[in-house]
Design a protein around this nucleic acid. Sequence first.
DNA 1: CGTTCTAGATTGAACGTTCATTCTATGTTA
DNA 2: TAACATAGAATGAACGTTCAATCTAGAACG
Lengths: 210, 210
Amino acid sequence: MDMTADAPSPLPADEGSRAAVRRTQILDAAAQCFRSCGFHGASIARISRLAGMSTGHIYHYFDNKEAIIAAIVQRDLERMVTVWAELRASRDVRETMIALSAECVGDHLDADAAKLRLEIITEAARNPEVARIVHAADCCCMASLTETLRIARQMNGMHDDDATLTSMAEVLAAIFEGLSIRTIRNPGLDREGLAAMVQRVIRQTISSPA
Amino acid sequence: MDMTADAPSPLPADEGSRAAVRRTQILDAAAQCFRSCGFHGASIARISRLAGMSTGHIYHYFDNKEAIIAAIVQRDLERMVTVWAELRASRDVRETMIALSAECVGDHLDADAAKLRLEIITEAARNPEVARIVHAADCCCMASLTETLRIARQMNGMHDDDATLTSMAEVLAAIFEGLSIRTIRNPGLDREGLAAMVQRVIRQTISSPA
DNA sequence: CGTTCTAGATTGAACGTTCATTCTATGTTA
DNA sequence: TAACATAGAATGAACGTTCAATCTAGAACG
């Protein structure tokens, strides 16, 4: 009975990837359902239908619906953390920042992405486990953004204390994340004009003295 | 059968107010439940318990759960429309704007208010009827804000075209609404520092040339 | 090469629960 | 008594989850 205990993962890499594919299939289907019905409005039946498998089979890959939600949240946030880490690692911070901000505006104005993001935030407002995941990811992103701001402003000869930089980062984050709300409230907004105005506000904020 | 058709509201004022009290009771209870469980997670049983009445009795005042949601959304947005209308009507626009912005920052950073607002936006992202209500209210607010910006900037000798003013209003709205997301993602943020930074960014945006 | 064995993948029906809504009965007031 | 306020049980649908059964593909073996 003890003899098999040594093998850490009984599955060969081949079958591991098979399972990974299935997991991705489920998460993609779930994300789409969550977007259109919300975390609690989307049923396992609907998710499984969209994923092309039976309801029961979902439970071979996730313990329960909560676990699917957590995985969706994790996957979405990992992408965000990566983007901000890349920014911080880049050599020409200012150029990268401008380029990234354009991309970031577009991303936050995309209706589908905005829906899922809002679904996640709203769930974080009532589900402590989701709140924990969201907050942990946010700490990473905001630390990156704050340090990036420090470098960018030092290049302009300005030296701010931590509190100022932190608040500045919060406002910039608020602008981006607020765009997701705007695109829901007012779907017909002028995307290009808005993107230009966001860049203008950001540029001013970064380059103006304290 | 035709004879009673003339009376627009068959209830005397007294009973109308009694019913109004009950309606408010239900809406208050519902708002609290929606905050902690979400629109779909909150059950009629829980709402009725908190409102101090039976489940069945709820249906004397609202056709169904959807109607309660719509009423909550309507009530929340009416307050917002009123605030912006007041701003536009005030004589010293700039002073009022600064004062209002402080109040507005505080309001959007309040966790309870933020939760309900996010719940509403998220519901608007998937429920067309709620989206309609939200969008209608937003049009009022944004029209007010745009005209207010026009006046404020003309006082500084700047004349912008409509597109510029509209985009500027969108960014300002995004900042405020984004704060509600920030307070969820990062509950421990420095409220006072953030409020000061928001005012600084707004002031710069309003007073800088196009 | 053909057969048997086996373990994981997959299914769909069944279960118990919870929900929104309806219905019926009982107070309450004017 | 007529009309309204209120309660709480009844209803049927939908949901998350479980489970026993079937399928599939490859390993073991002769």
